[in-house]
Design a protein around this nucleic acid. Structure first.
Lengths: 349, 349
DNA sequence: TTTGGCACTCTTCCTATATGAGTGCCAACG
DNA sequence: CGTTGGCACTCATATAGGAAGAGTGCCAAA
């Protein structure tokens, strides 16, 4: 993929590329040779810079929107910039403290995620996203039946990962607590063997024989579990904040593309796939423009980082914004937030 | 507010207004006198129509975007149209059946709401919204404690309205099922009296004396309940679908206004207020443009209807779209969906 | 009361033209 | 040989001038 070995890019060319990208990120307009010459204390004439630019353009690192405009970085240009030219601006000490403070105010885990994605979006002025990945092979840890008023029974499923599911069932007759306990015990036992469908079939057969509707209860529990498993396969979920920030950027002004992007957010699938990739990498990862592989994100870059709980990666978070984003600020932001989020979740569970 | 008594609008003027609005809704462009004359089998010359139009303009029912454009309806024009001119296009029999079918596929109540709002948005090509209003004075119906592995106990709170809440608590020692049952019984009994804080204080005192951490468990349950009550005050929530549909309309092309609208969707407050108003009216209600009272909705109309479960209004649903919307189709759509939703929730709970 | 006629107003679209930013290339310079 | 100034050239952008077309308002006649 990387046709461009940075070896063939002279030191000076790299320096100029760096200046160009930085400036373009700041100002958002094509940078001309004259502008670039004036900018930093370079003692180079515009003409010389033009020569270098021509080289950079040949290498596919910059391009000119049209003949008489300056140059802007290409995706490859950004890539080289991010990989080897970038000087990161670490977060200030008290910014970190401010972040930590916000995190400490969130009570339950869900709240922590919402807080984190809001923080990401607010600080970056872009969209913040946090993925809660599929939990590894869901299992039922425990089933309980709670008798309610009337003929109603509450089925409670405790999954691994301490996730809980409820469903209310109306049965054909009232069951005593003892009966319910017995049913729960039976199921808990049976499900330890783990082959759901077998248990299910057995119940079905037995039900036909005995007409006992308590089996229906157990079936309901199994079906709930099954549904969770299927749901689990589909690959997690995410919390998104600040989508509307993206509407503020000139490079996203095309309302049709924007709509497609928002549709993708709602569909979730593509974004989840992308975040999933980032889960397997370690540390901050950056997808610039088309690199993501999703057409809707062509005009966007995504900065991600996995976050860990108890030393294990449990999810990915990131920011999504226009390709022209302040990578130098965002990378540490995403990095720190990932760590703080991990820490907060650790305390909180 | 209504300066315009329809009495002063001649029959013919009303007829022409009706034609104009219908046509404008269809085509989206200012309608000229010539066009209007040709349109329906009117034997009126453009000149006569111009006279009428001048009258309608004086009454504030139509306006011309500029000198040499045709006329478009004003908010007041739409209002008169909707109130007394509109001929509703009822849904076809098998459209209703198709809707019913979709509803029947949804399993749990939450699913039903999601389905309904998706349906609204898909059929209308606009945004569909369904409000779950604040439940009236939340009450705890039942508390249960489920012993999990380790020292963990799952607190299950069954509220009225069959809503269920879970929370996992780690206790200082392991409790036998019998102990847990006893605690639950005690709490269920105590809470029947309903004065939460009293129960809470009693528990606190007793806890200090006995050092019994099972009281902690009960306290946790009470706190959960309290939190739900406070949360309930904040006024319901809603399910929104198809926001992005709104990006397709020319009259919403202004990206800044669109952003404000989307921000309002996220903020939820304003939209909830509006829907809340509609809950007290009965039947379909329509807010045209500025009538809603919210600036972000100035370019929008909202068609709402409350929906009922067991004969009681429990929520409101509606569609949100540009002022130029097909009221004749949307009104029955919203109406029927509200009824089907009520029916589905009835069955489903 | 209705209608045809007519002048008038605006928007929209096209064209032409000037402006200015920035480039590429070349020849000269150190 | 890298660097630089000069210069012709390109192209986006802005501005102005018309021409076309749609639609109105008003008036006088039917």
């Amino acid at each position: 993929m990387s046709k461009v070995s940075s070896a063939v890019v002279s030191d000076r060319a790299q320096q100029l590329l760096k200046l160009l990208v930085e400036r373009y990120i700041r100002e958002g307009q094509p940078i001309g040779s004259r502008t670039l010459a004036r900018g930093q204390g370079l003692d180079l004439s515009p003409a010389s810079i033009r020569n270098v630019m021509a080289d950079l353009e040949d290498l596919g690192l910059v391009k000119a929107p049209h003949t008489s405009a300056g140059r802007i970085p290409t995706v490859q240009g950004y890539r080289l910039f991010v990989d080897s030219l970038l000087t990161v601006k670490p977060l200030g000490q008290h910014e970190v403290l401010a972040l930590q403070d916000k995190f400490s105010q969130a009570a339950d885990p869900q709240q922590v995620l919402v807080t984190a994605s809001s923080l990401l979006s607010e600080i970056s002025s872009m969209a913040g996203v946090i993925m809660v990945p599929r939990r590894e092979q869901p299992t039922v840890r425990q089933v309980e039946f709670i008798s309610l008023s009337g003929n109603r029974v509450l089925v409670v499923l405790v999954m691994n990962g301490n996730q809980v599911q409820n469903r209310m069932i109306t049965t054909s007759r009232r069951y005593s607590p003892a009966e319910l306990t017995q049913a729960a015990n039976y199921l808990n036992h049976a499900l330890a063997g783990k082959d759901f469908n077998k248990v299910r079939d057995a119940l079905l057969v037995e039900m036909r024989e005995t007409q006992e509707s308590i089996n229906q209860l157990m079936l309901a529990a199994i079906d709930m579990a099954n549904r969770t498993f299927q749901g689990g396969e589909e690959g997690g979920d995410y919390v998104l904040a600040g989508q509307t920030n993206l509407m503020g950027y000139a490079e996203m002004a095309d309302i049709d593309r924007l709509r497609q992007l928002f549709d993708a957010f709602n569909r979730k699938r593509d974004i989840l796939h992308l975040l999933d990739q980032a889960a397997h990498a370690q540390g901050v990862q950056i997808f610039i423009g088309e690199e993501s592989g999703y057409e809707v994100l062509d005009a966007c870059s995504v900065v991600t980082s996995p976050y860990e709980v108890e030393g294990e990666v449990v999810g990915v978070l990131g920011v999504i914004g226009p390709t022209r984003m302040a990578y130098d600020r965002l990378i540490p932001l995403v990095d720190v937030t990932a760590k703080l989020l991990g820490a907060a979740l650790n305390q909180n569970q």
